[in-house]
Design a protein around this nucleic acid. Structure first.
Length: 590
RNA sequence: CGGGGCGUAGCUCAGCUUGGUAGAGCGCUCGGUUUGGGACCGAGAGGUCGCAGGUUCGAAUCCUGUCGCCCCGACCA
């Protein structure tokens, strides 16, 4: 092996932080000469960056092989037709880069590759005997993000390992899914990345099961919940633990009460305690009111529908959860125009019931669909609007006085809410998605006609899984996690080089230092270590030490003034510890 | 798409309020001194001040427009 010498390696470190980088990983990767920005969210990779990326990819490949998956490689540039068949050409919206060739034919820069993987298998396989199959690639993906940010953490071009499994039975899919999931656990462990496996929303993609691997970090973009008892879920996938239903026995009848000037929950609670205190004297609280929120859904066919959702007054609507609950429709708060078009809704005093009868629900006077939070169980009593301006109704009981068109998970999740599996209260945390395993089911195979003959000679549709890992995002997260005020500190598993050798002397005067350094570098290379050698002849030691720290190779060998005594220093980048070692003993010490 | 900030040398920035022939530090080239924590001296190279209009005898500076970038939010299989 030929050692890599700084005198002719393609790397330049920057003395100051680049002005357009704010996040630590972005700042250091640019400063230390790993990447350069080309356009927002698009980066060029320099030799150091490529080496780290290759290390990560090698670990992924290794574990993909262990999981029985085979590597293939698709183009990033693909014809648009497969994406039209599954309708993703439209559904992906502005997020997809689209372009035309010279004849006007449509192409896309692939945001993900489900379609072409499916078609490839369809092209080659016809029999259940060929299944199961897992294939993967490591390829650049293109997504025209509305706002790329934080350097590599959310780019428009990024490297992803995407794997796809093909089975002809549901049990087979479960096994393939589990194999990938296990491989992910091994990969993230080898990379030294903490992760939480959370239940993810699977609805929109038509699949049955989905889990995300989140790395818990404050810079994360996803909010998830977890309990001490081991439950973890994306907030979109969190399900509410509903209280038990109660009998109507002994419940007082509903009562309309004057509550002027109480358009908000806070004013309502205050008024309730004044004008209609609870018989036993304990104060009413916001959680006992039923807040009815008007939402506007835009369906795929662009029709607009007004719906009302009832939830405890101490909860806000979480629009992300709402999007999932109403998918594929888009959700937004109702506008003044919506209210104008629905005079049956008395703003500030909306409720499912009125003295004249039901106001909300498909079968009510308005016909507006009405959904409730799962906490609104049969037998629960509420303070809510009476659809008369300035009046609320007390003791309105679900199941007795009103019914809804269904329960819906739309309320915000709060710290302390009980986990649905009974494992205790949950806490909220931030995380960054680093992997996603997904049972796609038969959606793509169905759309693209991927079928095989089974044991009985019957055509069956194949069931699929897709499994992604964000390679470049992982690189950024590792950088984000491993640094100090001097620069990067790579874990050995992904460091661009195993050892960094500094010749701390001046060529021409300290030739013994350079000769000793050459010997050490050769020894290290012979022992199988990759070496980055700072052999710059006339650079002062301070600059060399600074660059060594910035670049972040975990083991640094300083060949300098100790050479006269036949010693050098082995410097641990992470701990800062330096130990003196005989020149001949370096390769067994580091 | 909404809010904020910024575009001046390779990099980081000053200059703009109050218009008058474009600056600093770092980096780069040449010569010399220096070498265990980002040395120093001397001599250089390098910028149509994002772009386009306008005001003015004169615009980096004032006005209008436009493009781009960064951050926050919305959005994000």
């Amino acid at each position: 092996m030929v050692p890599t010498r700084l005198t002719n390696y393609f790397v330049k470190t920057l003395r100051e932080d680049p002005s357009d980088a704010e996040v630590t990983s972005h700042r250091l990767l640019v400063r230390a000469g790993y990447i350069r920005r080309q356009a927002p969210g698009i980066f060029a990779w320099l030799p150091l960056g490529l080496r780290v990326k290759s290390k990560i990819e090698a670990i992924i490949r290794d574990e993909m092989t262990n999981a029985g998956a085979h590597e293939v490689h698709f183009p990033a540039l693909l014809p648009k037709e497969p994406y039209e068949v599954t309708n993703r050409y439209v559904e992906y919206g502005d997020g997809m880069f689209r372009l035309n060739d010279r004849r006007g034919a449509g192409y896309v820069l692939a945001p993900t590759h489900e379609e072409v993987f499916t078609l490839l298998v369809k092209d080659l396989y016809n029999s259940y005997k060929d299944l199961p199959l897992s294939i993967y690639q490591i390829q650049d993906k293109y997504r025209d993000e509305a706002r790329p940010r934080a350097g590599l953490l959310r780019g428009r071009e990024f490297t992803m390992k995407d794997a796809y499994s093909f089975d002809y039975t549901d049990a087979g899919l479960d096994a393939s899914y589990q194999a990938q999931r296990d491989a992910y656990e091994r990969i993230f462990t080898r990379l030294g990345l903490e992760y939480v496996i959370v239940k993810a929303d699977a609805g929109a993609m038509g699949g049955s099961k989905s889990e995300e691997f989140l790395h818990p970090t404050a810079v994360g973009e996803d909010t998830f919940v977890r309990s001490a008892g081991g439950y973890a879920a994306n907030v979109e996938a969190f399900t509410t633990l509903a209280p038990p239903e109660r009998s109507f026995e002994g419940l007082t009848p509903a009562e309309v009460v004057d509550t002027p000037d109480t358009p908000t929950i806070a004013t309502l609670v205050e008024a309730a305690n004044t004008v209609h205190p609870r018989p036993d004297g304990t104060p009413w609280n916001a959680g006992e009111t039923l807040k009815n929120v008007v939402l506007a859904l835009t369906h795929l066919d662009h029709t607009r529908e007004i719906v009302v959702v009832g939830l405890p007054g101490d909860r806000e609507v979480d629009l992300k959860r709402a999007e999932v609950a109403f998918a594929p429709a888009e959700v937004e708060p109702a506008t003044d125009d919506d209210f104008a078009l629905n005079p049956g809704l008395v703003k500030g005093y909306i409720g499912p019931w009125s003295p004249e009868g039901a106001v909300l629900g498909e079968k009510s006077s308005t016909g507006i669909r009405y959904f409730v939070d799962p906490r609104v169980v049969s037998g629960s009593g509420w303070i809510t609007g009476s659809n008369i301006h300035g009046k609320h109704v007390f003791g309105l009981v679900a199941g007795r006085d009103f019914t809804a068109d269904g329960a819906i998970e739309i309320a915000e999740v709060k710290a302390g809410d009980p986990a649905p599996d009974g494992s205790g209260p949950v806490e909220l945390a931030r995380g960054m998605e680093i992997g996603h395993v997904f049972q796609l089911g038969r959606k793509y195979a169905e759309a693209l006609g991927l079928k095989v003959l089974d044991e009985n000679g019957k055509l069956v549709t194949v069931t699929m899984g897709s499994y992604g890992i964000g390679v470049t995002r992982i690189l950024a997260i590792i950088a984000e996690l491993n640094n100090d005020d001097k620069g990067l500190i790579w874990p050995a598993a992904v460091s661009p080089f195993d050892v960094y050798v500094v010749a701390a002397g001046r060529a021409g005067k300290d030739d013994a230092i350079f000769e000793a350094a050459e010997t050490i570098v050769a020894d290290l290379e012979r022992s199988g270590r990759s070496v980055l050698f700072d052999d710059r002849p006339r650079v002062s030691p301070g600059v060399k030490f600074g660059d060594a720290e910035l670049i972040g190779v975990p083991k640094i060998v300083i060949v300098g003034r100790g050479v006269v005594d036949g010693t050098v220093e082995v410097w641990n980048r992470a701990s800062g510890e330096r130990v003196v070692v005989a020149v001949g003993a370096v390769s067994e010490t580091v």
